[in-house]
Design a binder for these strands. Sequence first.
DNA 1: AATGCGGGGTA
DNA 2: TACCCAGCATT
Length: 362
Amino acid sequence: MMRNTLIAMDAADRLLNWYDRHHRELPWRVSPPMARNGATPDPYHVWLSEVMLQQTTVQAVKAYFEKFLTLWPTVEDLAAAETEDVMKAWAGLGYYARARNLKKCAEAVARDHGGRFPDREEGLRALPGIGDYTAAALAAIAFNRRSAVLDGNVERVISRLFAIETPLPAAKPEMRALVSDLTPADRPGDFAQAMMDLGATICTPKRPACSLCPFRANCLALATADPETFPRKGVKREKPLRRGAAFVAIDSSNAVYLQKRAETGLLGGMTEVPGTDWTARRDGETSIEAQPFAAPWEPCGAITHIFTHFELRLSVYRANVAHAVTAANGWWEPMASLKAQALPTVMKKAIAQAIPHAFKTG
DNA sequence: AATGCGGGGTA
DNA sequence: TACCCAGCATT
């Protein structure tokens, strides 16, 4: 009977049971025994920690959190602080827009809300630096609201628990709905923190400790696939590297030799300097044999350009040639009117590599 | 939907 | 090295 009772326990209870036994003590937390008695942490503390924890590890945040509370014990103290001092105190934590928004948010809370944070998700979401995640986390943890908290950890847990094949970020609405279904009315803040603790300590990106997981009997990914392959990510296919050479010829009147690309295909109909084909072969950049005409070509470095489907590295060669040397299909364009040509960015980069002042005058 | 934004930890 | 981290704002 006890066994059946345990199996019948729903996922939230199972997770909270695990959390009660394995949660981490953190400076901004109220311990689960206190939380079970209805205690909620100081919203200012929760907000400060959540902003600091955006894309930042718990370990890195601890010292900063303590320092900020010492310098500015209340949100109104922070609102009254000099922005420069806030920036200095934030230094080293990274993502400095967070610090600027932190100050703005404190000012808004002090000025518009009487020094008290809004106690619902929508009100919080309207404040500077508070997005979907932080609004939900603050509402759940500090105000005991049944908000669906979805961060990188929760995305990983949910994607594995339900073996979600939809790649991120498209899967986020689906994941949010599942989290919403799972979130209990009782202890929603602890549930959110438990999900995140689970993702941080058990359901890790690499080599998850599935044998220790409170969801191990329910996890679809564990049952049917390799949990480590979740969450699925958008196919950011690696851009192949292509190489080529570009030849920038300058005549005695300071004109540059240009030609027109084929009308169809990549950069169709645009203007270019002569060059090799762009190939995946490593020797693509050394084909001086592809020079449009004989000249004392000298290498002058390389440029890189990212296209939608590949990355291009062009070795650039430059030569000063006698006036009126020509090749088929091209023309000599005066330096002053280069800017008015239909030169795609990659070609402007190549020309600027050969002639640094090419586009700076005229 | 894609980018830029810091700095540090892990496999 | 590559990926990831209690994401947000902007375009």
